[in-house]
Every structure is written in C-alpha cells, then in structure tokens.
Amino acid sequence: MNPETAVALSGVWKTYRLRERGTSPREVLARIVNPRFRTVEALRGIDLVIARGEIVAIAGPNGAGKSTTVKLLSGLLAPDQGTVVALGCDPIRDRLRYVSRIGVCFGQRTELWWDHPVASSFDWKRVVWNLSQSQYDRSLGALTDMLGLNDIWRVPARELSLGQKMRADLALALLPEPELVILDEPTLGLDVLAKRHVLDFCREINRERRVTIIITSHDLSDLEALAGRMVMVHQGQVAFDGEFDRLRATVGLQRRLRLVTIGEAPSLDGATFLETRDGAHEYAYDAGTTTLPALLAHAEAQVTVLDVETHRPPIDDVIATLYESWSGAPSRT
C-alpha cells in the first residue's frame, strides 16, 4: 500500500441476514417453527481510497451502508469479501496495533466514565493507551486550549450537557494523538456554537498535525463546512466521490432566485416557484439552461420587482434531490 494512503477498501462486501418476525401471535409461532430470513446487502463491492491528511465526509440515506463502512474502518466488523487496509494494518487481524493509532468517536455514545469527573476518564485513557507522561501533558495541554476543557474538567460525565460531553469525548479520542480519526455523527444534538467548536477543532488538527479525518453526519452543511471530499454511499455502493462543488454540479447548475415584488409571485418560464416567505418569492432554476436576465425580464413584465437575490441551494437540498432521484421520488430542486 502506498505510504501516503491512509485507508483502502477494495471490493468490500458486507451482507446481513435478518430474521423476519411475525406480527400476529399465530405468525410469530409459525416463524419460530419455520424461520424466514431476508438478506440485506449493506456493502456491495465498495472501493475507496483515502489519502493521509484528507478530511472525507461519508454520507448517504438511512440504510445506505455508511455505518457499516465506519464499523469496518474502526475494526468492529469484518468484511465478508474484499479487503480493508488502514494505516497499513488489517483492522481486525492487527486490532491492537491499529486501534492504538486511531481515534474513534461515536457521537451518540460516550466513552466517558459516567460517575467520574472528566479528568478521571483522561487518566484512564492515559493508562490504558500507555501514554508517557510527557505525551499526555503535551496532548492534553493542546486539547484543553482548543476545546476549552477547563470548565468541565472536574464535572462528572453524567452532569455534562450534550455539547460538553461531545467536547470531552472528542478530546478523549484525540488524546493519544491518533493518525486517523473516525467521527460518527459528532455533531448530533449539538447547538450551533458547540457544532462550530467541534468543526473548527477538526479543521485545526487536520491542518496542524495532518490527521486524516473520516466523518459521518446527517447534517450535510456541517460536512460541507469541514470536508473537502464527499463520499456518498447508496445501496451499498459509492454513488458519488468527489468535491462538494462537483456534487452540486451533478444536479445541474442549480440556483435559487429570491424576488421581492409588489403584488403576487410572478410566473417565470424556466424557473420553479418554491414558496413565498416574509414577502419574498423563492424560485429554483438551472443556470445552465436559463439566464438570470431572462428571468428578471419575465418577472418585470408582470410585476414591479423591488429586490433580487440569487444563491446556491443548500447542500441538504442538493443531496435530497439526489436521494429522491435514487428512490424514484419527484424532486423539487
């Protein structure tokens, strides 16, 4: 493997066999005698290469296979077929060597000792990860500055807010100065400020230490703010792999037009009316096929235009359009 490669998934298949449960008592009994199973192909021959120092976002609709991908990379799951190589290790066979070099943070589950102050969890981590006192002091010093741990240092984990807990968990994952950080929904339930802290911090450690970061989130604007590269998984395969701008381009040069007018929302050829909010009418149009002057001329022919604003649609809308196109549902962008 190229030493500059952090992670390489090659032809990875992962299949789950799920037992189908009955609904009525009779059906439940029948299924005990004659069990039925359905097969779910979580990953279908996935190939993925991530270079050292990259920040990669993994996204996809529910059940797309992103959790399975994260578990494979964390050494929690073994692939049915194909190979997973991360930091030159097989995450399952070389588990101890591998996990000593990675940091994993499950946003929805804390690693903190529940009834103990945050400080105790860090002491625990120092011993279990066998960190030298100098490494511990250096890393903790940096983390304390960046994540503001001082105010929660002596507080038991059970008394922390969601945002504080996330900060502490993130710091705990990064204490051993890992080369690869896997963040599974790290912004889950966080308020705007806490979210910004977490994202800024990730950017900083990536820039300063060239740490490779793999992040999943349902909040796609978070991912866009952090990651340079987006991998979208759909039905167990990589449906998109590239930069966010290229992702936007896959659904055309979509733009939003906001018009403030005197009177009703005008009907515009080449644009789809979305909604009227706070006196402004919003339209979606494809800048590749429809020009803005043409739309404005059309509008002014019908009403008096007081203000105009164009912007790109939020990344969530772009992704929603993709999801809808994958599922065959009508899209609105």
Partner: peptide, 13 residues
C-alpha cells in the same frame, strides 16, 4: 447494547 464497541477500540487484549 452495543457498548462492546468501546472495548474493541481499546489497544489492549
């Protein structure tokens, strides 16, 4: 409860 994951990401047997 799936908390076994935490054990598996510790660098010790």
């Amino acid at each position: 409860r799936g908390q076994f994951d935490h054990l598996l990401v510790q660098p010790q047997p």
